[in-house]
Amino acid sequence: MESPLLQATDLTVAYDDAPGAPAAIEGIDLKITAGDSVCIIGPSGCGKTTLLKAFGGFLPVARGGVLYRGRELLQPSRDLVMIFQEHNLYPWLTVEGNIGFGPRRLGIRKAERQRRVDELLRIVGLESARRRYPHQLSGGMRQRVAIARALATQPAALLLDEPFTALDVTLRRRMQLFLRDLWSRTRTTMLMVTHDIEEAILVGQRVVRMGGVPGAPAGIVETIDTSSPALKDRFSDEFRRLQAQLEKQMERETPEENAAPEPTAAATVEPALLSSAT
């Protein structure tokens, strides 16, 4: 059996270090193999983003842990690149400059760097916008640049935290297809958090549903195989059936009852830079 790229075992993340402090997520077991495309869904506050951040090494764990290629993940790694809701593109760099930012800082030769940038521009369909600045792009274009920038360092996995939340419905649908197509072409491992069931079924090859009994830390409720071609058509009966079923299940879990606040900023692993300034 193929060894997992990422593996969470009994993963528990608490709000703070104090003994007896409530956990945001508890006892999570999840394996992500190379080339996997997994979407995490669940009601608001159930710990989806907490789980994603833990997979990225951004959060200290209270119990259990995350293994990356069999080794314990204790801090963020450049092999696991996170994409946030906001694109966070550098406004002083062009599209090309933003995409080439990572490879350049890693000391990759200019020719190779340019080759990667050109290829990614082609993949994300922004060849004609290479010399534009972020403020000259639409929301969808910016998010595509952010994805290309993340891919430029050739990471082992992309961790996407509700990347299309800020986009309107039409653009969002286009971006969902773009991401699915990107995965088909590059087979880059993707772990995406979304609150949109439709998005999860369309993009992911597996959908992990999080939730839990009210008052208790959230965990994984079920994992659904969504790789069937019938589930990639939003108008198919299978798609609609699964969507309705998941909606019903998630509606039953009232957000107020099982809401688990995200860990405070102090509990996250901040970049070393400037940490003393705050």
């Binding site: 696991l80 996170m82 966070n88 550098y90 990572g102 800082r105 830079l273 400037l274």
Partner: peptide, 30 residues
């Protein structure tokens, strides 16, 4: 410097930059 969005630094760190690179290529232009 205090106004530099922390996400800029998080992204740069995640892309594999060192602390001095973050100063030179993220904080300074910002």
């Amino acid at each position: 410097i205090r106004r530099v969005p922390p996400q800029y630094l998080k992204v740069a760190e995640n892309l594999g930059t060192s602390a001095w690179q973050r100063w030179l290529f993220v904080v300074m232009p910002a």
